[in-house]
Design a protein around this nucleic acid. Structure first.
Lengths: 318, 318
DNA sequence: TTGAAAGCGCTAACAG
DNA sequence: CTGTTAGCGCTTTCAA
């Protein structure tokens, strides 16, 4: 009766339901897990690297998307934040064997992530938010290359000449793709990619500030930042150098977080559907677990260029 | 052997350890839970109201503190984000009975939170981050009243005359305490509390902006904001009105989030040890569960006034 | 110090 | 359609 099986008479069902109500009965999940071998719990893993950017609203937004979907399917969600790298071994075992989980969402993996390797080798179900690291992995992502390309093409179409970029850490597929998109756009427009105009950041505001300080010396007139946080830092650097945005320097960000509308001028940026990305990851994982989808499954969500105030109108023609 | 019991010979122990290694054996957690009645899992609940402010770095920071402590004790962490209020009933049952958890950390409860009532009534172990809602509750918090008072006293000591405040939602103990502290400081200085100078916010940047816009019309020369996000909004409003900070208007925030140093001028604010707050909550809950602490347990963590650039030097004397 | 046995609360299979 | 039973993998107790 409890599990809504079809072959019970209405009378019996009613009787049982009554007793359940009266006694406040709940099935013991541990016993159920023991026999079904299913926990109805998903694990969400944020690897070590990400903890430094963890305060970025990107993650909470992702959580909300995941949580909503997980709740709707009557699953639960276990959270694992990576600690130091040395502990990764122990970390993996804990997640995998003590974790009581049916599958894992990996929210932010670096290249050659130990976790991904192990998961793949052990054939444990997981969905990665990012680029597929191997042929078997299930992934959910946006097309970062395309999105970045759109951003930079926007800059080009407005007539900017020396377009730099502040990239994220190179061991992240997101960062590399956005950088690739930047290069593609430049080449497609018949321009050369100057390595001088590519500086490294780490997604934090401070690194955007530092990166922009460098780029300003190299006389860029526009910059594409791999996320909004760095774009905000870049904006601050431009202002502190006594220059104006977008008159002297244009800026495009990536993410479209709330802060994009809080800075002055508001940020032109690429919107990615973060919440949906999380929801989709959870949805895919659950469907995979329930056999409604077969691995490897890949989903790509659309992005959108949001034009605000950091790029100005069309200005010069080359 | 597995559970490190004392009465096993070294030889046997070694033999077992070898086999475990070789076979890659892990005890089945469900079976263990079934018999021990302990899951070694903590639940972290963020109630419905908070989801709107969830992107504020406050929560990720709290998570990190909790997660670290939880990991160190070899516990795991289950995450529950509140959904719509109508669902609260179902939500409670899920957390409580399907949740596989030994205890709960409630990160942000509103007054008369259904969850708290139920937990208390059911005598289920939990730790609340905030003010004790009843005599039995275990809590971890900072002294918000005192902290707010220090903030406003700072403003008073610098000679500001018309000091307003942008408060958070009144159904949150944090908000009320910070407002109380504001009032206390004013009264202690022999000033009257003008209700005109108290405006309501919701912890979001936008509400700080709106609140400041109102307060500017009422000609404040200083404002205490219940969090840094609103302080950033207030700052934006002041700038857009063509006024300068701190020359025309002084601002004090609360939290000391990274953004405090990212705005211009950097924010004078109250620093609260968010990560420690989370760690302490987890620590207390675990100790409670393991009988090393007895309920009700209360911890109060210290805060600190961080002076930066939004309050200026001493200027006028009354 | 070790081995054997009971039982945690459930689901699934099968007999009535 | 309903009632009974075996067994999931562990911990705990008790006997050897």
């Amino acid at each position: 009766v409890i599990n809504n099986q079809p072959n019970v008479s209405e009378a019996t069902r009613q009787k049982v339901v009554d007793v359940v109500k009266r006694e406040g009965y709940f099935p013991n999940p541990a016993a159920r897990i023991l026999v079904t071998q299913r926990t109805q719990v998903l694990g969400l893993v944020i690897s070590q690297f990400a903890t430094e950017v963890f305060a970025d609203p990107y993650f909470p937004t992702l959580f909300q998307g995941i949580s909503r979907t997980v709740n709707r399917h009557d699953y639960a969600l276990m959270l694992w934040l990576g600690e130091s790298l040395e502990e990764e071994d122990r970390f993996y075992d804990r997640i995998r064997h003590i974790g009581l989980i049916d599958g894992i969402i990996v929210a932010s993996a670096v290249d050659d992530d130990l976790l991904i390797d192990r998961l793949t080798k052990d054939n444990f179900p997981f969905v990665l938010i990012g680029l597929p690291p191997n042929d078997e992995a299930n992934t959910v992502d946006v097309d970062n290359i395309h999105a970045a390309r759109v951003a930079v093409e926007h800059l080009i179409s407005l007539g900017y000449q020396r377009i730099g970029t502040i990239a994220g850490k190179r061991n992240l597929s997101h960062s590399r793709c956005r950088l690739d998109g930047y290069c593609e756009a430049l080449r497609a427009a018949g321009r050369s990619v100057e390595t001088d105009l590519i500086v490294d950041g780490n997604f934090l505001e401070s690194s955007g500030y530092a990166g922009m300080t460098t780029l300003l010396q190299r006389e860029v007139d526009a910059v594409f930042c791999a996320n909004d946080g760095m774009a905000a830092g870049a904006l601050r650097a431009v202002h502190e150098h006594g220059l104006r945005v977008p008159d002297d320097v244009a800026i495009v960000g990536f993410d479209d977080l709330p802060l994009a509308t809080m800075v002055e001028p508001p940020l032109t940026t690429i919107r990615q559907p973060i919440q949906k990305l999380g929801g989709m990851a959870a949805e895919v994982l659950i469907n995979l677990l329930e056999g409604k989808l077969s691995a490897p499954y890949r989903a790509v969500l659309p992005t959108e260029l949001v034009i605000r105030g950091t790029c100005g109108a069309v200005r010069r023609t080359a």
